[in-house]
Structures are given as C-alpha cells and as structure tokens.
Amino acid sequence: MTGTFPLVDIKNVEKRFGGSGGFLSTRQPIVSALNNVTLSVQKGNAFCLVGESGCGKSTLARTVMGLHPPSRGEIHYDGKRIDDLSQRDRQVYTRKMQMIFQNPYASLNPRMTVRQTLEEPLKIHRPGMSKLEVRDKVEEVMRSVGNDPAWGDRYPHEFSGGQRQRISIARALMLDPEFIVADEPISALDVSIQAQVLNVMMDAQEDRDLTYLFITHDLSVVEHFGSHVAVMYLGTVCELSETKSLFAAPRHPYTRALLSAIPKMDAKGVDHLKMTGEVPTAMDLPTGCVFHPRCPVARERCKREVPELKENGDTKTACFAVEEAWI
C-alpha cells in the first residue's frame, strides 16, 4: 500500500451530453456534466466523491468505468491510457475494475439465481475454470461478504436490501479486482444496514488490498470511510484533500455548507449554513465560478473568472475567496 502510486489518473476530463440533433428533433441542449476534472486515485485509497444530485459524480464514475467515453481528456489506469481502447482491449481492465451500483433492487437480474449472477463474470472472463473451482470461488466470496453460501439457489427477491447489496458486492469481488467504483452503494438502505454494508466493504479492502472510488452525498459516511475526498459541484471539483484535513478545516464555502448540513445527534434544533437557491442545471452553467450564485461570500471576480484548483495548505481548492483570503 504505497501512498504515491496513482492507480487511476483522471486528466482534464470533460463530458457533454446532447448537442446533436436527434431523430425528429431539432438541436438538443448541451448538458456539460463534467468540466475539466483532474484527480488521481492512489493505490490503497478509499477515494470519495461527494456532492449534491446533478453535480456529475456518477457521470465521472461511469466515465472512469468506460460506460460512456469522455468528450475530452484522458483516463489512465496503472499508467496506461484506457479511455480510447477498443472493447476487446478493454476486457483486461474490466477484470481489474468493477462497479457496485446504488440500487440493489435494480442492479441484480431478478430472473437469475444468486449463483448464476455470481458465476456469470467467471464464465466470461475466466472460461478455463473448472466447475469445482467456480463453485469454490462462489462459496468463498459469498462467505467473505457475510452471506450464507447455501443461499446460492435463491432469487434476488427473496433477500432484504442489505443482503442484496452484499450480493452486488460479491459479484464485484468475483474477479478479484484491484479497483472498485461504488456509486452510492448504501443510500438506498436503512441506517443500521448501512453499517453492515460499509463494514463488508472495509473488510474487503483490508483482505484484498482494494482501491475504492466511493460516491456518496452523505458526508458522515465519508468521514468514516474515506482516505481522500473530492467535493464536486456542477461538474467541477471544488475541493480536494485528505479526509482528515477536510473535516478538520474545510476551506471552500461549498464544503463548509455541505458539512454544516449533516444532521447531528447532539445538536439542539437544526442549524446549518444557509446556501441560497438550489443547484442550477448543467444545461446553463453560470459564468465564472460555478458556485457563485449560491455562494455567501461571492464577489465581482467570482462572476467573471473561473477559479482553478490550487494547493492551499494541505488541501486543494478552487476558490478565489480562499486564494485571496477574504473568507
């Protein structure tokens, strides 16, 4: 677990949707989902992406996984560029990179038994394995996520949400990947079950030396689970830092607002930094800093110029207020 070796390197990635005239329609509006995102995930990290809905965190995850190609920029895995590979060349990386989705009710095929679901990746990527080896592997992985291997012949509908999400995790672990992208894996679950699933993911990280890209809108989970955090707003990274320093001293006004919105158990009443308005749509990006219409400390410069992500003490922020120390 070296701390300096970038496993996944995202370089100046942009992603736009729409724009071309579709069938029977005139030009569609362009949605700029990602704007010049640069970040790298070191081996052994639990890298968290946080932000409100519509900030592009899922788009980034899907772009990394190759589920849609970036409009501009490059994605490197283990030193090699992977975003321009053909589907065939990409298969090598599919084995190393796996994904866990948000909703375990939608991401498991209802007509396949748990065993079929878990065996499928092996049939595709490891056709040489014998039946016995496959069976042993399924049992081993089922056990490691805390599910009884005897449940193999049941269908997804027979399981509770937490058990289903553990099956999704098991499916992602079947190929012994190095890197797992988890897109809000616990937000559809009860609080008590969230703890179970997080523990399974943390155990798997320890046992298998995994690297995570973990997407969530819940900062309390990040503080617990993440080693590094990128806070995203409207397709841009506005703060990037180690989890400890981010929680100890959030710099960017958006990060501060997000942190203050976490409901706290011992607080009297609700008390949070007010952000005015809601996330604007990515169809019509604000000029200058994308956060300025909601920012409590925005000044003239923020409306004109786009701040770059710059080193500021132990965190990186994209904010003029932090740079020029007026906050």
Binding site: S160, V191, S192, Q194, A195, N199, S220, E223, T243, M265
Partner: peptide, 24 residues
C-alpha cells in the same frame, strides 16, 4: 442503542462500524 451506535458519526473514523447483526 444499536441504531445510534451504527451511525458513522458515532464511530471512530476509519474503524469498523458498530452494527446490529442480522435483519428485521
């Protein structure tokens, strides 16, 4: 007790979360 202890904010960051085993 279990519900409260399972909250991430009630746990030491990075440690295993307290969980209620099993399900309803």
């Amino acid at each position: 007790r279990g519900l409260i202890k399972a909250l991430p904010q009630e746990n030491i960051p990075g440690a295993r979360l307290n969980q209620i085993p099993g399900s309803m």
